[in-house]
């Protein structure tokens, strides 16, 4: 491993200033990706600029919607009850990334800036319409997360720009979300496929109670959906995002459109799954085969949507982990 200088600025301005004066320099946050790349000699910067001392990047702000500083760790997010309740898909993702040791230091900004197609937090951020707030020498700008990724390891960040935070709008009533990470192992694993969904449904008190009774059973997902159809639950709005199916995490926009305004039914979910699968271009890799990933999109979109609905209908219940959704 070649030698490098290590800088520890205390403010965003200072960090940008250091960066703009250096060649072959790289920002480092939690370091769980950067340090590994260094040790594998995949990168060899002469300068590393640590962001860890910049406390203004560590905020979680829930006043209007949700703002998460880029230096917030996965563990911080796991422990945030507000996020868990309202932006559940994000907690689904942060709680299953790497291991406890990794989550204790790995930051959400780092996970996104590393721009891996498998980045766990990318799908939830996409479904929450997150904007990346970026600060650079030329000032501050906001980029829709959809536009943030350019390809594997590539983002819109200019050399002397820092990702400050993610900003997500407030969610409507009766909105639920979920992220499902499909893995071979139950921990310490990258997703074969990741799917996040957010759905807003029309729901009155009475139908909430009836749905609740339905969802409390351990019936199969299709049986529950069949009965749900009679409730006439309408999907007001939906978001679907998928990881490891393209060079970058993507939204399944056609599938989202197919959901909007429809009455929820097993047929609808299956159709939406098919559409989402058609929007993906997964590849064969040692981590998973393309055909299998496509098949799993159909299954996981359905399950993630179910899980999202479950969270609307039964907001205070833990979802049984052994349940398929």
């Amino acid at each position: 491993m070649r030698s490098f200088e290590y800088y520890k600025p205390n403010s965003i301005e200072e960090a940008i200033k250091i960066m703009s004066g250096l060649d072959n320099a790289k920002f480092i946050a939690g370091g769980t990706d950067v340090m590994v790349q260094l040790r594998q000699k995949k990168i060899s910067p002469q300068h590393l600029i640590s962001l860890r001392n910049i406390s203004e990047l560590r905020n979680i702000d829930t006043k209007d919607g949700l703002k998460i500083g880029s230096l917030v760790t996965h563990d911080d997010i796991d422990k945030n009850e507000y996020i868990k309740k309202y932006y559940s898909a994000l907690t689904d993702a942060t709680s299953r990334l790497g291991s406890k040791q990794i989550r204790n230091v790995a930051t959400i900004g780092g996970n996104i800036c590393n721009a891996a197609p498998s980045a766990d937090t990318a799908c939830p951020l996409l479904i929450f319409d997150a904007k990346a707030v970026i600060i650079g020498t030329k000032g501050e700008r906001e980029v829709d997360l959809n536009e943030f990724f350019l390809g594997p390891g590539k983002t819109v960040l200019e050399k002397d720009e820092i990702l400050k935070e993610f900003s997500m709008p407030r969610l409507k009533e009766n909105t639920g979300s979920a992220y499902i990470k499909h893995t071979r192992r139950e921990a310490m694993d990258l997703p074969i496929l990741g799917v996040a969904t957010r759905i807003t449904i029309s729901l009155d008190k009475d139908s909430q109670i009836r749905c609740r009774d339905l969802l409390c059973t351990i019936d199969s997902i299709s049986n529950i959906l069949m009965q749900l159809k009679d409730e006439g639950l309408k999907c007001e709005e939906a978001r679907i995002a998928m990881g490891v199916v393209a060079p970058k995490p993507i939204r399944a926009k056609k599938a989202e459109e197919a959901l909007a305004g429809k009455i929820i039914s097993i047929e609808l979910f299956e159709e939406v799954g098919e559409i989402a699968a058609s929007e993906a271009q997964p590849r064969d890799s040692i981590r998973g085969e393309a055909w299998y990933r496509k098949e799993m999109i159909k299954v996981l979109v359905k399950r993630a949507l179910m899980k999202s609905i479950d969270r609307i209908v039964r907001p205070d219940e833990e979802i049984y982990p052994e349940r398929l959704w």
Binding site: R185, E186, A187, M188, D189, I286, R287
Partner: peptide, 23 residues
Amino acid sequence: MIYKDGRLMNGNFLDYKIPTVKD
């Protein structure tokens, strides 16, 4: 161990998956 043309493709603990405590 995934070998492709004599080369090991998954020579690390992330891709060669021995069971964790959760398994």
